[in-house]
Computed example of a mutant assay.
Amino acid sequence: MNLISTLIDKITANNLWDKEFVLQRNEFLKEKGTIDTNLYLVVTGSLRIFVVDEFEEHTIRFGYKDNLIASLDSFLNEQPSDFYIQALKKTTIKSISKKKYLSFINSSQEYKEIWLSILEKFVLQQMERERDILTSSPLERYRRVLKRSPKLFQEIPSKYIACYLRMTPETLSRIKKS
């Protein structure tokens, strides 16, 4: 059972989405220094979540069809975030406010358990990603992401995948060819 699909279906069945809107390619959903406490469903298209240091951008995560995304730090603590969320192509999104979402989650033990399981999986994925970046070769990182998220390579341009994998686009291209 896909817990995210189950959660999306429950939100949709209860008609809880606040609005649906379209972002054009390269348009920002969220910029650094802003507070965003909404949860988003990617209906079509794709987005990236990234931070910028003084030298370069660092892609943290992607969202594409049927993914839930958020500036999770801002969603949880209601403070400004250093994250940007940007459309990589024309993207249709639905949103639900934190207040409405938490009211829904707290209305049922089943929903609470689904949400907790999703958060646990997310934390484990982030830990695995961090370990990979720190200890794995570029080839190993590529193989793990390909195994874990094959759809990523169909939805996201290679230059952003390379950034996510902490390698140059040229290195990613060589790995994909070999």
Rank of each mutant, 00 (worst) to 15 (best):
R129P: 09
Y111R: 13
N77F: 12
I4C: 11
Q24E: 11
V51T: 11
K177V: 06
S5F: 14
S71K: 00
T171Q: 08
Q24A: 12
I161K: 11
E130A: 14
E27T: 08
I11F: 04
E128S: 14
D53W: 02
E57I: 07
D53Q: 10
T37W: 00
I96R: 11
Y142A: 06
K10D: 10
M127C: 05
I85T: 10
G33D: 08
E130M: 08
T37P: 01
G33H: 14
T135V: 08
F83A: 01
T91C: 14
S136P: 04
P138H: 04
V43K: 10
F28E: 06
A70M: 09
I96L: 10
S46M: 03
L39N: 06
K99V: 12
K151T: 06
I96S: 13
R131S: 13
P138F: 04
N106W: 08
E56K: 15
I118E: 11
R143S: 08
R129F: 08
L16G: 02
G63V: 03
V123E: 04
L134I: 07
D132R: 10
L29M: 11
L3Y: 09
L47Q: 09
K94F: 03
S95C: 14
S74Y: 02
L88Y: 03
I161E: 01
K90F: 02
C163T: 11
F21S: 10
T135I: 13
F28L: 13
E57D: 15
I49M: 11
L29F: 03
N106I: 04
L116S: 14
L116H: 15
S173T: 02
M167D: 03
F75G: 04
W115E: 14
N26R: 13
P169E: 13
E140F: 05
L76E: 01
R61M: 09
S103F: 06
L16T: 11
K147N: 15
L124A: 09
N106Q: 12
E128P: 00
F104S: 09
L124C: 11
L119E: 07
A87I: 10
I96G: 06
F55E: 07
I161F: 00
M1V: 15
S97A: 11
D36F: 01
K19W: 08
P157D: 03
V52A: 10
L134F: 12
K10N: 07
Y101M: 14
P80S: 14
V43M: 04
E20S: 13
A87G: 12
I96M: 09
K176Y: 02
N67T: 01
I105R: 01
E120L: 04
T171S: 15
P80R: 10
I118M: 07
T91R: 11
A162S: 04
P157M: 03
L124S: 13
S137T: 15
I11E: 07
T171F: 03
K30W: 03
E27M: 07
Q109K: 13
